[in-house]
């Protein structure tokens, strides 16, 4: 069967209790061949949205359509087995009483299901473990079997729920790389849920940020990182420091410098400053209060004259000591001004 070219989630709402909605008018489009990462803190509604797409969760209001066909709507609810989505669960949910190849063959029909399951296992380089049971496989192998099982029936959409969170940190990068290669080769629309910003930024073509049941920003990862729409959005993808100020004569002044702004004068704005955007000079009024090394990077904490705290990320090759007085330069690309509405 054919893959889904466009999967649309529109105004999805789902409340489990009266005063708390897991989803609050969430909208998102997924396209074939694109890997979309859904990034959010725990409890932000990511998994609920994913499960709603799979048909494991109903919606109170809102619609989910695939190429114009309604999956979930006011009067329609397509059963999960009729949606043809491939879902990789966080704990993999492998059937413990079936071997790897039996797991993969579960969603297949026809006389050649065994051989097709083996083909799929080969695609994740696990053909040699075909007759092993899940508990005999390592965590990374289990993850790959789960991926093969989800992909085997040639699903129209692939969903992954925190697929790498159960893995050892050192393994994770490698498994992630391989998973993404397999997913790109499949060419379907992919949505994967994660709370790891680095993972989302590195793997996805599209990044959707979720907070309190809403999609608050959606776009290319680089764009989201450099141009967050709010403080919450900025914090989801990386460290940021926040400072309230007012635009004056086309510039927004901060205790450590100023950046140009096209906003009207006297507009109150919030400046979102990434630590990577602050450079240090030898002369100035900032007092160095703490220095943390992390391999090639040095994180410098400073206090400005007005008492505000700032953090800069500089190469660890520079020499700096606690108590030094330093100056700062601001790289405007790393600073975003947002207005409060």
């Amino acid at each position: 069967m054919s893959r889904v070219e466009l999967l649309s989630i529109h105004g999805a709402r789902r409340a489990f209790t009266k005063d708390h909605a897991a989803l609050e008018r969430a909208s998102l489009d997924l396209r074939a061949g694109e890997i979309t990462a859904l990034l959010g803190a725990s409890g932000s509604g990511k998994s609920t949205l994913l499960r709603a797409v799979a048909g494991l969760e109903q919606l109170d209001t809102g619609e989910i359509t695939a190429d114009g066909v309604t999956w979930t709507g006011p009067k329609t609810f397509l059963a999960p087995e009729q949606r043809r989505v491939g879902l990789v669960f966080q704990d993999y949910a492998l059937f413990p009483h079936m071997t790897a190849v039996e797991n993969v063959a579960f969603g297949l029909t026809g006389t050649d299901r065994k051989s097709r399951a083996l083909d799929q296992l080969r695609a994740v380089e696990l053909e040699h473990k075909a007759s092993q049971y899940p508990h005999e496989l390592s965590g990374g192998e289990q993850q790959r079997v789960a991926l093969a099982r989800a992909l085997a029936p040639r699903p129209g959409v692939v969903l992954l729920d925190e697929p790498f969170s159960g893995l050892d940190r050192r393994l994770r990068g490698d498994v992630r790389q391989r998973t993404m290669d397999v997913l790109r080769a499949a060419g379907t629309a992919v949505l994967f849920v994660t709370h790891d910003a680095e993972e989302a930024l590195e793997s996805a073509d599209q990044l959707a940020l979720m907070d309190a049941g809403r999609i608050i920003q959606h776009g290319a990862p680089q764009d989201v990182w450099f141009n967050p729409v709010s403080e919450t959005a900025a914090r989801l993808v990386g460290d940021v420091q926040v400072c309230a100020t007012i635009v004056s004569q086309g510039r927004a002044a901060l205790p450590i410098g100023s950046v140009a702004s096209e906003l009207d004068d006297n507009t109150p704005v919030t400046a979102l400053v990434r630590p990577q955007g602050i450079g240090l000079t030898t002369e100035g009024t900032l007092n160095v209060t703490r220095i943390t090394y992390s391999g090639p990077i040095c994180v410098v904490s400073m206090e400005a004259e007005d008492g505000s705290s700032w953090t800069a990320q500089i190469p660890a090759t520079e020499t700096i000591n606690i108590g030094d007085r330093v100056g700062a330069t601001l790289n405007p690309a790393f600073v975003t001004l947002v207005t409060k509405n």
């Binding site: 087995e81 669960f89 966080q90 704990d91 949910a93 059937f95 969603g107």
Partner: peptide, 12 residues
């Protein structure tokens, strides 16, 4: 999840 997985894989 095992039950849900079966459902997404086409089982009633």
């Amino acid at each position: 999840d095992a039950y849900d997985a079966a459902r997404t894989l086409g089982a009633s």
